[in-house]
Design a protein around this nucleic acid. Structure first.
Lengths: 150, 150
DNA sequence: CTGTGTGCAAACTCTTTGCATAAGT
DNA sequence: ACTTATGCAAAGAGTTTGCACACAG
C-alpha cells in the first residue's frame, strides 16, 4: 500500500486575495458583494491564513465597526464553505472552526487554548490505510495532532 | 524524521469485560457499581468494541428496560472517560462520540450515516510530522478518514 | 448512618430558521 | 423593479448543572 498525502478533495483554486479583489472573489462564487460579506471576507482572506470560529469573526467585525449579526456570520461562513473558500475543521468539542487555508494540510491543536496551527500538507504522509468498505471512497483524511504542555 | 504510530497516550489497560466482571471494572475505576452504571457498562463493554453517542446509549438502556435519565448517561460517559474506560472521538459536528476501544487506532467516518468504523492502530503510520512548538508535546494523533458514496 | 449517585427540570452554548426589512444589480 | 441578503428574535440541538431524593457501603 502506498503513501497518501492527506487533505481534502480538490477544490477550485482560490485567487490571490488582497484588498480590492474581494469583490471579484465573491462574485466569482456567485455571492453578491454586500457590505457584510465584503467585511467578513476581508477579515478572513485579507491577511494570510486564519482559523476562526463564528463568534471570533463576529467580534472582529463588530470591533472593526461593521454592523453584522451573528446569524449572518454563520450564514456567511457556510456560504463561503459551500463556495470552496473555507474549510471546516473537526476538532471535537462544540465549537466549529473554519480555516481559510483550503489546500492540503493538517493541524496541531493546542488543547489548553483551543488554538489551531497549520501543518503544511506536504509534510505529513499517511501510510497503511486499509481499503474503504464497498461503494465508499475517501473524501479526505483529517489528521489532528493534539498537543499538551510538557 | 521517523514514522509514528497514531493513537492516544497510554492508559491503564482495561481488563477482559464479560458478564460478571463489570462490577470489578467499576470498582477498580473508583466508581460505585450502581444499577445504572452496571447497566450502561454492560451495554458498552459487554459485547465487543462500540461507538456510541449519549443519545444512542440512552435509547438502548431504556429499550433494555433500564430506568436511566439522559443526564445520567452523560455523566456516566464522562466518568468512564475520566477513568480511561472510554475515549471521545472528534468527528466534528455537534454530537460527541465515545469509543469503547481505547487502544491505538483510528477511524473511517461515513459522513452520510454518521457511522464510525475502526481502523486497527497497527495499520496506519503517520510520517513527516514537524516538531511541535516549544513546551508542547504530542498527546495523541487523531486520524479520521472521511468516506462518501462512490 | 454517611456520602455518593441519580433524576428531573431548568439553564446554557452553539447553531439554525422564519419572516419582515434592507440592499444589490 | 426584482431578487437576494440581512437582522432579529425565537426555536432547536446537544450538553451541563443544581438540588432534593435514593441508594450503596
Amino acid at each position: 500500500m502506498t503513501g497518501l498525502v492527506t487533505g481534502m478533495r480538490s477544490l477550485a483554486g482560490r485567487p490571490g486575495t488582497r484588498g480590492v479583489e474581494i469583490g471579484a472573489l465573491l462574485r466569482r462564487a456567485n455571492l453578491r458583494p454586500t457590505r457584510q460579506r465584503v467585511a467578513l471576507a476581508t477579515l478572513l482572506f485579507g491577511n494570510g491564513d486564519r482559523h476562526v470560529t463564528a463568534e471570533i469573526l463576529h467580534e472582529e467585525a463588530v470591533a472593526a465597526g461593521e454592523k453584522v449579526s451573528l446569524a449572518t456570520v454563520y450564514n456567511t461562513l457556510h456560504q463561503f464553505q459551500r463556495a470552496g473558500l473555507l474549510r471546516e475543521i473537526a476538532i471535537g468539542g462544540q465549537r466549529a472552526y473554519f480555516d481559510t487555508n483550503i489546500s492540503n494540510h493538517n493541524h496541531f491543536f493546542v488543547e489548553a487554548e483551543g488554538q489551531l496551527i497549520d501543518i503544511p500538507g506536504s509534510s505529513i504522509r499517511v501510510d497503511g490505510l486499509p481499503e474503504p468498505p464497498e461503494h465508499l471512497e475517501i473524501s479526505y483524511i483529517d489528521v489532528v495532532v493534539r498537543l499538551v504542555s510538557k
